[in-house]
């Protein structure tokens, strides 16, 4: 039974990957690498863990997801469309003039987008605000913030990390998409981040590291995060940038470049082959 639903999640993840490739290919610009690396994390949240009602995107008791690494917008849009927040046909309007699917997510244009992001480093503090509001309103919704690893270099992330533990925000979970790449190359060469898990611990968080493409590990970690009391929890998810498309994997050149039509075909064919 559990095995079955993992297979369903894996199928959903492949569907999101197809959307990502098609959307960015059609748009002619965008960020495939960091969208693909977080597919399993976002799939687990939207299709298994989070309490949401696509018909009622402003339901006060919904769980909140913040895509702090806003350049992974295609991933968020694919998940929202698959979940039923808006018609899937909209996906192919990504980045076009007048489309609600902006290059970086904008919460005033698209149902399901909680926060406008794109300027890195800001999502965690916004999550803190939501977590404090939940406490004031005695609501039991949870807040999930997805951060890039390069994004962790922004000082504001650590200001927010300090505040989250100061206020004991155990309704907040940070997930780091630890793909070890940023734009200018490897994170450890550009501006080293290790030890990431210990940094969160030093800031008063509970933290653990998982394989960010392994659904059982992701689900287990999200369950663990829910059980942590009195502190915020951080999940450092080791991932592969460009995951699922061989020629994009671990290649920083695919951070912010659209695949050409023949590359879209190749990528979709590879994803088809992964269909078990």
């Amino acid at each position: 039974m559990v095995g079955n639903s993992i297979r369903e999640l894996e199928a959903k993840a492949r569907q999101l990957r197809r959307h990502i490739i098609q959307m960015i290919g059609k748009a002619g610009s965008g960020h495939p690498g960091g969208s693909l690396s977080a597919v399993e994390i976002v799939t687990a949240l939207y299709f298994r863990v989070m309490r949401l009602d696509p018909k009622n995107p402003h339901w006060p008791d919904r769980d909140r997801f913040i895509l702090s690494k806003g350049h992974a917008a295609p991933l968020l849009y694919a998940a929202l469309a698959e979940k039923g927040f808006f018609p899937k046909e909209w996906l192919l309007t990504l980045r076009q003039l007048g489309s609600p699917l902006q290059g970086h997510p904008h919460c005033r244009y698209l149902p399901g987008v909680e926060v406008s992001t794109g300027s890195l480093g800001q999502g965690l503090a916004v999550g803190n605000g939501m977590a404090l509001a939940a406490r004031l309103d005695k609501r039991d919704y949870r807040i999930y913030v997805l951060l890039g690893d390069g994004e962790l270099q922004e000082g504001m992330v650590w200001e927010a990390a300090m505040a989250a533990s100061h206020y004991g925000l155990d309704n907040l979970t940070a997930i780091v998409d630890r793909n070890f790449l940023q734009i200018d190359g490897s994170t450890e060469q550009v501006m080293s981040l290790e030890p990431v898990e210990d940094k969160f611990r030093a800031f008063g968080w509970e933290a653990r590291t998982i394989d960010g493409h392994d659904f059982p590990q992701i689900l287990e970690a999200l369950d663990w995060a829910r059980r942590v009391k009195g502190k915020p929890a951080a999940i450092v998810a080791h991932t592969i940038k460009g995951k699922g498309v061989s020629f994009m994997e671990n290649n920083p050149d695919w951070h912010g470049k659209a695949p050409k039509p023949e590359e879209v075909e190749r990528a979709l064919a590879e994803l088809q082959d992964q269909e078990g």
Partner: peptide, 8 residues
Amino acid sequence: VGEDGASH
């Protein structure tokens, strides 16, 4: 800047 949108 174009397609990246208002944030950029």
